[in-house]
Amino acid sequence: MAIKLAMGLKVVFPAMFCVMLATLIYTLSVDGLPFPGRPDVFTPWFVTTVVDFYINIAPIAVWIAYKESNWLRSVSWVILLLLFGSLTTCAYVFLQLVKLTPQEASQDPMYHLLLRDSDRDKTGRGNKNSPVVTARFVFGALGCLMLGTLLYTILTDGSPFRRDLLYPWMVALLVSFYIDVVALSVWLVYKESCWITGTLWLLVSICLGSAGTSVYIVVQLLRLSSQDQLYLVLLSNRNRAGSGYERTTNIDTLIT
């Protein structure tokens, strides 16, 4: 099952890369570059979708920065993500999948994909300067910003479900946005052991975009203590228990 998952992801992400690349090339050929001075492109809902898009890739950028031990590679990948969006997401995830050994792919590909090598055998506790509380505030603020932006645009420009909004660059932006949603959904489904809960959160993420994703991340961060390492939010409960995290938590609870 684990090997099939790894193989499936190796097919899905290159396929999404090709879809996005074809969409981008087509849009450039029929509608040119989306300069900020073009009112036919930068409509209120396009701007709102751009805000939604960049908030949605914020957790992906944080993950990439965490995965890369070299700061120069980290900055380079994040810049590429900001410039090319889902094209970079698909390329980066695929490269990480290719790096998995056959043993890692057969055991738990998501666990080895999400964590960097140096953190795979740690319990994730004992850091008094953990950024967990800061991350809660940041993603909570991003979620509130997106909700506020959505409400403002609805009040000033009406419903987004209009035919006139489906012009080439809006469609291209939506394709890129939802490819990133798919990438985040893979992590969300992996996190949730109950398929009902996972499906509900998935619907929230699809319907509310980055606002729903931000809420989900904050909920997961609230399950960590202020001394936990931030990377633990990446793991499912099963992986955290298997790494010794739950055992350490119980010991700490008894001591306190």
Rank of each mutant, 00 (worst) to 15 (best):
1 M>T: 13
1 M>K: 13
6 A>C: 11
6 A>K: 10
9 L>A: 08
9 L>H: 03
9 L>W: 07
13 F>V: 09
21 L>T: 05
23 T>C: 14
25 I>C: 13
28 L>M: 09
31 D>T: 01
33 L>H: 05
34 P>H: 03
35 F>Y: 09
35 F>L: 12
36 P>S: 03
39 P>S: 13
40 D>R: 06
40 D>I: 09
42 F>V: 03
48 T>Q: 15
50 V>G: 05
51 V>M: 13
56 N>L: 15
56 N>M: 15
64 I>F: 04
64 I>Q: 06
64 I>W: 01
66 Y>N: 03
67 K>R: 15
70 N>K: 05
71 W>G: 04
74 S>C: 05
80 L>P: 01
81 L>G: 02
82 L>C: 09
83 L>I: 03
83 L>E: 04
84 F>I: 03
87 L>W: 02
87 L>H: 05
91 A>N: 11
95 L>A: 14
98 V>A: 11
99 K>D: 13
101 T>N: 04
102 P>L: 00
102 P>D: 01
104 E>M: 10
109 P>A: 05
111 Y>P: 07
111 Y>R: 15
112 H>A: 06
120 R>Q: 12
126 G>P: 07
128 K>V: 08
129 N>E: 14
131 P>D: 13
133 V>F: 12
133 V>C: 06
138 V>I: 14
143 G>Q: 04
144 C>A: 15
144 C>D: 07
149 T>V: 14
153 T>S: 06
155 L>S: 14
163 R>D: 11
163 R>S: 10
166 L>A: 05
166 L>V: 02
169 W>A: 01
170 M>H: 11
172 A>S: 10
173 L>C: 02
175 V>F: 02
180 D>V: 11
181 V>F: 01
181 V>R: 00
182 V>H: 08
182 V>R: 03
183 A>I: 06
185 S>F: 10
186 V>L: 13
186 V>K: 00
188 L>N: 11
191 K>V: 10
192 E>I: 01
194 C>E: 12
197 T>E: 11
198 G>V: 03
199 T>R: 08
204 V>M: 09
207 C>L: 15
207 C>S: 11
210 S>V: 04
211 A>W: 04
212 G>T: 02
214 S>F: 01
218 V>I: 04
220 Q>W: 13
221 L>I: 07
222 L>A: 12
223 R>D: 13
226 S>H: 12
231 Y>W: 07
231 Y>Q: 07
233 V>A: 10
236 S>D: 08
237 N>W: 12
237 N>R: 14
238 R>S: 13
239 N>Q: 15
241 A>N: 14
241 A>K: 10
242 G>C: 06
244 G>H: 07
245 Y>E: 03
246 E>S: 11
250 N>A: 14
255 I>G: 01
256 T>G: 14
